[in-house]
Design a protein around this nucleic acid. Structure first.
Length: 443
DNA sequence: ATGCATGATTAAAT
DNA sequence: ATTTAATCATGCAT
């Protein structure tokens, strides 16, 4: 539960070693002077090499002594000579720094996950709070939002750690760099050090630190991935919609049975009504798509089509329900020219687009472009669907033609024709035949 | 434990 | 890019 993402790693910062000075010294000191001087130089070298082993004060004193040493200029010259000989070999190792693909990937991911991006505290927090409030006020899909906020909290935590660490590293890098630069500058009094070399050294240090940073980023990515799989990818852990949501969706479905393909707007509307806030971010970075609603309709369509008989009862229920509400809402205005006029037998025909096509066309045209805009059109369409069902269920289907035509392929895309080859096995038997119980072949 | 219901995921089709 | 059809994996009732 509380396992902290392990962001911390122990990093060893290794400096590239200096070229072996000592050996060159031994050969290079072959001056014409006597052994005494050799001894002196040996001393000095010894002191230089061990200077870091000494305490600061001691080193300071010794450095001073060295700088004042009578042999210092000579040593400096010799070192210059040596350097001139070796500098060629150093020059060869000029570094090429290709933009690291790996690092770029990590950066991108961190950015995408909102870890390294701009401060996202305010807006989404408010949104989340609003969502939570909505969930609380409406129906209880609160577990979802609770989980989500939990996820976000953890993400924020990771984010915090990441930034802290990053800052720490950056600071350490700077400190170390200035330290090394000071050291080199100091040493440049004793041995020849060109600015370029310092630059190179700084580059090396920075590279080292950036590799550490990469490890940090990698660890962070890992942590985020784990978190993700723990929370969001638990989407497979299905939460059933509550009763009200299902009712709303079913209402829409059965009142748009001829074309149960809600537009994006309609889906949004439905999601809002159902308090489905789990609009998962689409990978395509477009608008957040409401997957649950799409899923629901996808499943519903396929399952309805697969076994219409099984859904008859449900269909009747919702058809009746919406019929009542629709007629009461739209009064008799649309009722006057509603498809009930073509009478029961003709109702099925109207879906064949054979007659009364004009009305249906106009309805479709209105209904097609906008879900909320063409209220009347939608309403009429709604009633058409609804009535169709009522009729099919009540005595209206006495002529088997109507029933059989009901779900037969219309071949007219205006009407959706969304079911290609439905099996009208037990279409109009209210008692529902012993049809196969399995809507799914699974399990 | 078992079976069905159901939301989510996937490959393939459009 | 969306939908279908199949499938998965879980929730819930028994």
């Amino acid at each position: 539960m509380d396992e902290q993402p392990r962001l911390m790693h122990s990093h060893g910062v290794g400096m590239a070693g200096h070229p072996g000075l000592a050996q060159h010294m031994q050969d290079g000191t072959g001056g014409t002077d006597g052994d005494g001087r050799k001894q002196d130089i040996g001393d000095i070298l010894q002191q230089i090499m061990t200077i870091t082993d000494q305490s600061l004060d001691e080193a300071q004193a010794r450095k001073h002594a060295l700088n004042c040493h009578r042999m210092k200029p000579a040593l400096f010259n010799i070192l210059c000579d040596i350097k001139e000989k070796t500098v060629l070999s150093i020059r060869g190792s000029q570094e090429e720094e290709p933009p690291d693909a790996q690092l770029m990937r990590l950066d991108n991911m961190l950015l995408a996950e909102g870890v390294s991006g701009p401060e996202k505290g305010g807006g989404s927090a408010v949104a989340a709070a609003a969502a939570a409030a909505a969930a609380g006020g409406g129906v209880g899909s609160d577990t979802n939002s609770a989980e989500h906020s939990d996820y976000r909290a953890k993400l924020t935590q990771i984010r915090g750690i990441y930034h802290t660490e990053l800052e720490k590293y950056e600071q350490a890098c700077n400190e170390f760099t200035t330290h090394v630069m000071n050291l080199l500058r100091e040493q440049s009094r004793t041995r020849p050090i060109s600015p370029k070399e310092i630059e190179r050294m700084v580059g090396i240090i920075h590279r080292k630190f950036s590799s550490i940073q990469m490890q940090l980023k990698q660890s962070t990515c890992e942590a985020v991935m784990i978190l993700r799989s723990r929370f969001l990818d638990a989407r497979r852990k299905r939460r059933n919609f509550n009763k009200q949501a299902t009712e709303i969706l079913n209402e829409y479905f059965y009142s748009h049975l001829s074309n149960p393909y809600p537009s994006e707007e309609a889906k949004e509307e439905l999601a809002k009504k159902c308090s489905i806030t789990m609009s998962q971010v689409c990978a395509a970075s477009h608008k957040p798509r409401i997957y649950p609603v799409s899923n629901w309709f996808g499943n519903k369509r396929i399952r309805y089509k697969k076994n219409i008989g099984k859904f008859q009862e449900e269909a009747n229920m919702y058809a009746a329900k919406t019929a009542v509400s629709a007629t009461s809402v739209s009064a008799h205005g649309s009722q006057a020219n509603s498809p009930s006029t073509p009478n029961s037998a003709g109702s099925a025909g109207s879906f064949n687009m054979s007659n009364s096509g004009d009305l249906f066309m106009s309805v479709q045209a209105l209904n097609g472009d906008s879900y909320q805009g063409a209220g009347v059109g939608a309403n009429v369409q709604s009633q058409v669907d609804t009535l169709r069902h009522v009729i099919s269920q009540t005595g209206g289907y006495s002529d088997s033609i109507a029933a059989s035509q009901m779900y037969s392929p219309q071949g007219i895309n205006t009407n959706g024709g969304w079911q290609d080859a439905p099996t009208p096995s037990s279409v109009n038997s209210l008692t529902e035949g012993p049809g196969s119980v399995h809507s799914d072949t699974s399990n």
